[in-house]
Design a binder for these strands. Structure first.
Lengths: 205, 205
DNA sequence: CACCAGTCTAGACCGGTGGTCGAATTCGTC
DNA sequence: GACGAATTCGACCACCGGTCTAGACTGGTG
């Protein structure tokens, strides 16, 4: 975790550090980002950086969770999923996915940060600090799978861990593909519709 | 590419280098593997290593392509896919997938090496040297998708690049999940059957 | 024999990395 | 002002992948 001391810094300096870190992580991804460049850009010394953050991974985790928070603040909380039948389930998923992607495409730097997520998630140094972030995304997917099974939208003959792993893998591949295509706002709904139809095909009963 | 000089080394020393590199890459993945540890284990100097290999990426590429070669020698070449209808297509896929996974589970070190592939494929230093390896896997998937479309086993309304990206993502997630489950030989066919059914659901028409 | 070009090895060295640490400085409070 | 805690600083550490030079060894030639 970020150390509590950080909150006591003048907001301007907090912002300088976070902005420098966001720039660096968005541009280079987790592993190739340089802490030395961050402290140089932010105008602080290495000692200060390690006084406020336990290390590179903690800094990344803090930046990423801040960005996630802002993204959710824009898009709104995840919707209720088990309020209808299977078709309803999937159309709610598609709608929410579409809104998320729209918001993401609207802020390229944030998109670049999340694009580097896949890389970061395989880095041992990062995985130790990932706990907090994971608890914001994986449980939601777990609940979504459970809700889908409740309304007969998701098959029940496979372990939930496998369904989740596959959905995450598909999502990652789709996100990377979409971000590399840079679709306009008109084409986006069609693309998202196709992606959700693929997920539906993979996991539905 | 590996330099031709390497082939002129005494086989024992070739083996020492390749074994040390395989151990290191399998244990740590591409990025976190240390060339210094490899040369120490192999008992050669850094100068010699760079005399025989252009760098870390070339060494990894050589080790990996050797392992791929041995794997294919065990399992046999990819099968002909467009010799029947859709059901035939998918059963051939499932059969081949099953044989590949069986062979992979039989040699844990090789499995660990390939598990690190995903990590490696995102490393810029690695991508430059990936050409040779890529030409052995991606084109095969492209052909498989094209063959599947020919026999109406794969939907034609989406770009091939998306289908391939999603299938690769699913495959990666499934492989990781399977290797983490460490299934016995009895359970394997069932699991592989489920996985192929998920891929089929995602990409079929 | 002497000489030489080519092959090969050793390891010092380079700029970079993330991370540590003790000293110096600033700040809050008596 | 004085004292202790909070904060800042940058030198320093071990390690990384990669470069480079000095020299040992080899086989061939006059």
């Amino acid at each position: 975790m970020v150390r509590p001391r950080f909150a006591k810094l003048p907001p301007a300096q907090q912002q300088a550090i976070l902005q420098a870190a966001l720039d660096e992580f968005a541009r280079h991804g987790f592993h190739d980002a340089s802490l030395n460049r961050v402290i140089e850009t932010a105008g602080i010394s290495k000692g200060s950086m390690y006084y406020y953050f336990d290390g590179k991974a903690e800094l990344y985790a803090h930046v990423a969770s801040t960005q996630i928070g802002e993204l959710f603040a824009q898009v709104g909380p995840p919707p209720q999923l088990d309020t209808g039948d299977a078709d309803r389930f999937w159309s709610v998923i598609e709608d929410y996915y579409l809104r998320l992607m729209k918001a993401l495409l609207a802020s390229p730097q944030r998109a670049a940060l999340f694009r580097g997520w896949a890389t970061a998630s395989k880095d041992p140094a990062f995985q130790r600090a990932q706990g907090e972030l994971e608890q914001a995304s994986v449980p939601w997917i777990e609940q979504a799978v459970a809700a889908g099974q409740r309304v007969d939208a998701v098959r029940k003959d496979l372990p939930a861990s496998l369904l989740i792993a596959v959905v995450l893998g598909m999502g990652e591949a789709m996100d990377l593909w979409m971000l590399s295509q840079d679709p306009d706002d008109e084409g986006l709904p069609t693309v998202v519709g196709s992606l959700v139809s693929m997920i539906r095909g993979a996991v539905s009963a």
